[in-house]
């Protein structure tokens, strides 16, 4: 084992505090299950709010999206070392959300049974409620097939998650790689900061929003966000909170019971509208976008596709 690998494992062992009383529900490969690879000494489990003990920076987004537990397992093969981090999220949407937040690719290849991104140092993938990173400490190109073998062994035991239909909230044609699932203000920062805290009430109501970026007229990058609230009055209340506590760097231009048009510090415009249970935002306009004149009273009906293959293989 290289000195760097040893040091890396020491880091994990020191940062890993809790006893593994609460296990995640995923079974990681046993020693020898992947030919040539034995389990190392480092084996830790983190649950609930313990995540800061493992991640030094960047754990807030896990907590916002719905973090349940993390298993960390070291594997060794002569001088090589892998460290598997398996994050169990509260539900498949949360797992997909963190995967997308981390920049995971949209689709899988046919050689791997889940959405994934791979380099020489890291394989990351998402399947069902799990977001998994496998770190190759040395980054040896020759070990990439082993990275994939570990990944397949873990992913194959997980069922496919049912479709969530959240892509239906947004118009098609977003810039590839920009689709995100949001559950609170931290994730929303990629689009806009409307004010302090959870003004939109997504965390309290357990709402998952969809967001993506678009090229408008082939030139301007526009962000769009959509969320469905339990009731129309919940959506109205969210808009009222935004209007009342709008961020100090946003200047209100106009508002009504169903919209807020604002200008930001870079002279770009954003529009928040409510239509029944649906709150929508479009952001980053170079000139004020048109405000809808009428509001539909038709109830929003959720559309959940019968099949939504998260691997993108079908």
């Amino acid at each position: 084992m290289t000195r760097a690998a040893i040091a890396f494992l020491v880091l994990i062992s020191v940062l890993g505090l809790p006893a593994a009383a609460d296990q995640i529900t995923l079974t990681l490969p046993g020693g020898g299950e992947i030919p040539g690879w034995d389990r190392g000494e480092v084996s830790r489990t983190y649950t609930g709010a313990e995540l800061f003990g493992y991640i030094n920076g960047g754990s807030e987004i896990f907590l916002e999206l719905g973090f349940e537990g993390l298993a960390v397992q070291e594997y060794r093969k002569r001088d090589a070392s892998f460290v598997v981090e398996a994050y169990e999220m509260s539900d498949p949407v949360a797992a997909e959300a963190i995967y997308r937040f981390k920049g995971g690719a949209d689709r899988a290849t046919r050689e791997f049974p889940a959405r994934h991104s791979i380099g020489r140092f890291q394989l990351q993938f998402q399947r069902e409620r799990f977001y998994v990173i496998i770190n190759s400490v040395t980054g040896d190109e020759a070990l990439v097939p082993d990275l994939l073998a570990f990944g397949r062994r873990i992913a194959d035991q997980l069922p496919e998650a049912p479709g969530h239909g959240l892509t239906e909230l947004l118009p098609t044609g977003w810039i590839p790689g920009t689709f995100r699932l949001l559950r609170g203000p931290l994730g929303l920062q990629g689009q806009v900061i409307l004010g302090e805290g959870d003004l939109l009430g997504w965390q309290e109501a357990g709402i998952t929003a969809a967001a993506a970026h678009y090229l408008e007229s082939g030139e301007h990058r526009i962000g769009r966000v959509a969320a469905v609230y339990p009731t129309p009055s919940d959506a109205d209340a969210a808009l009222e909170r935004v209007q009342a506590q709008l961020d100090e760097y946003l200047t209100p231009v106009s508002q009504s019971a169903h919209h807020l048009l604002f200008e930001d510090w870079q002279q770009r415009f954003g529009l928040v509208t409510v239509n029944g249970r649906v709150l929508q935002m479009s952001l980053g306009w170079p000139s004020p976008p048109p405000v809808p004149e009428t509001v539909s009273d038709e109830p929003y009906e959720e559309h959940v596709p019968e099949e939504d293959d998260p691997t993108g293989l079908s």
């Binding site: 991640i55 030094n56 920076g57 960047g58 981390k102 920049g103 991104s117 380099g119 020489r120 140092f121 890291q122």
Partner: peptide, 9 residues
């Protein structure tokens, strides 16, 4: 993106 921890991509 995704710093300060390592994200290779």
């Amino acid at each position: 993106e995704d710093g300060p921890m390592l994200n290779e991509q």
